[in-house]
Write a protein that binds this DNA or RNA. Structure first.
Lengths: 348, 348
DNA sequence: ATCGTTGCGACGGAACCTGACGCATCCGTG
DNA sequence: CACGGATGCGTCAGGTTCCGTCGCAACGAT
């Protein structure tokens, strides 16, 4: 087996994309992998690869730093096949706006690779029309993902994973200026397209929720992070206000107007879901689901197109919410008595 | 530059993951890339790579077929860095159930690579706890993605992209048995976690919507696909019943109870959104949004926690839906007059 | 049965890769 | 300011190994 190839491939994969890495550092890592070579050989390898694979060498400071340029084409082994490429392409459309940009940013190279792949696979005309043949519809009301700085995202996740404290500049909701805090990051929660950090402050024992896009700066500290006794993210979320707390399982029993229920015949509520056609207009669906706020919102959204029969408690709640909501609009004035001065209290 | 390395890397990337490829085919492709070598050399390369990189050779039939085993570790150049790996990991949790399995199946190798990366990056204790530190909450009611056969998914997308006709076995909603159809695939629509194919049948001019998970078999034909005059997927969707039709822009004006409105202060409805605190309990939000069914559902979900002020038409509709929904529950009997025999009419 | 294709062992020659050495440069330190 | 250590790089000779060619065997299709 060509010893050369293994070493060169390892060398290429040891060149980082963002920060730079010195020749001797790469040499050390190669030896750590059992690939022995003289430092001179590593130098020669890097130079040779640079000319053909486009890695860059920062020759300003003396321990030269090697890195990939930002938008370099990826090479994967095994190569990306075109069904994979199409999946990535759908994903890209699907996620835009659904995921925080700081996450999909990191996936950009893969999206790009997928586009390249799709562009070269069919060299004939059809492929040029394929973007017109695919549409992605958001499963719920599309909301704009708040912008998270890439540096903040990386600092927070690094501190979280290496269990170190974190210093942040945070602008609380409704506040004008940001304040600097030292926090102990305990967990990361992605809800829809908003990233939250669960963290305890130095002097508050109780963990708090911080929106990552409200951090203007974040820097990991060297001090280790302290976890409050008995803290568990799992439990925190289940007891928290995310609208998905409550692990109680219920037997949902409801009749849908056919036009809406048809969706549930495609994507099931749970594995045990049972559907039954009452008549041409009505579908009865029974399924074991978790009793969450999200479920309530979702059922409310169907309005008169769904009637919840059981459990009785849920039926009462849904009925009550609808009556209350109708009552809101019962008071006739169609425009509210609002402060006409729109310039006060703008919070976002 | 080491000519060897380039050829070997190209050889590796030409070994496919699913089907097998013969030695001479790989040789032909290498020459097409300008990498000249004798067929004997290609043979030797593949053998050498096989022992060390685990590609497999099917020696049953005589033109030997090379392929990657199913769960082989990926090698990427540049290597996956750990923030990327974490993004993939979040994505995996995020998408499970949100995307059709036939799509996330194709992404599995990347998810696996990410898990490997996260497992090896920090070899100390913290990394073992990281899965407990990250949670993903679905942005809406989680529904189970219907299962689409991988072979169907690949056949459909291939026919679509190469603009060829397609033969399918399709079980319509409410039907027992599947029927064989010859269709002209026109487009692919991903709505939530359900994949639909827009297709015209041989004798019907009007395009129809087919759920991909209802196809038990699909095979691309060699005949070219015919697109009805003036067909446009864009227009079809906008006029169709996906609940997102209607390109009409409206000026939404509504007051939210603070506990719900706080979400909108994190993720905006539109770039032009303006928020204003009326009092400690109430937030008024104005934004330019598209008038879709989805928007209605979404607003309905908030029940009495939102009051829509404008446009007047939307306010009337929301009020009406709530009154109608409340009326459904007005009739007292908590259990409906349903056919007691649950064994009839089960459709899914 | 035969021809074409494919796989593979062997071999000689040449390509090129490697380690070693020496020198120049740069930086930090005493 | 001098010195030592670290780094980068030109050069060179030796030898490893890689390549194309040839020949033969096995298999399948016509």
């Amino acid at each position: 087996m060509d010893k050369n190839f293994e070493r060169l491939l390892a060398t290429l994969s040891m060149v980082p994309t963002h920060a730079a890495r010195s020749t001797s550092e790469i040499h050390r890592r190669l030896e750590a992998r059992g690939l022995r070579a003289s430092p001179r050989t590593v130098q020669r390898d890097l130079e040779a690869l640079a000319s053909h694979y486009g890695i860059e060498c920062d020759t300003r400071a003396k321990p030269y730093g090697w890195r990939w340029p930002k938008d370099r084409k990826r090479v994967s082994v095994p190569d990306m096949e075109w069904p994979e490429a199409l999946s990535f392409r759908l994903l890209e459309d699907y996620l835009s706006g659904l995921l925080p940009a700081s996450i999909s940013d990191h996936l950009q190279p893969y999206f790009r690779q997928a586009r390249d792949k799709l562009g070269t696979h069919f060299d004939s005309a059809p492929i040029k029309r394929w973007p017109e043949k695919v549409r992605v519809l958001s499963p719920s009301q599309p909301l704009l993902a708040p912008k998270v700085r890439r540096s903040v995202h990386e600092a927070v996740t690094e501190a979280l994973l290496s269990e170190r404290q974190l210093e942040i500049d945070y602008t609380a909701v409704g506040q004008e200026a940001s304040r600097t805090h030292r926090i102990h990051p305990l967990g990361l929660v992605l809800e829809g397209n908003v990233l939250y950090v669960v963290a305890s402050f130095y002097d508050y024992a109780e963990p708090r929720l911080l929106a990552m896009h409200r951090m203007s700066r974040a820097a990991p500290l060297s001090e280790p992070c302290e976890t409050p006794d008995g803290f568990s993210l799992q439990r925190y979320v289940d007891e928290g206000g995310f609208g998905c707390g409550g692990t109680e399982l219920i037997e949902l029993d409801a009749t849908w107007h056919h036009s809406c229920g048809i969706h549930l015949l495609q994507a099931h509520l749970s594995a045990s879901q049972q559907a039954e056609e009452i008549d041409a207009e009505t579908v009865r669906i029974r399924a074991t689901v978790r009793r969450t706020e999200r479920l309530t919102w979702w059922l409310m959204g169907f309005g008169a197109n769904v009637e919840v029969h059981g459990p009785a408690e849920l039926r009462r709640d849904i009925a009550k919410w609808h009556r209350e909501a109708a009552a809101v609009y019962g008071k006739r004035p169609s425009t509210p008595a609002l402060a006409p001065d729109a310039s006060t209290g703008v919070v976002s």
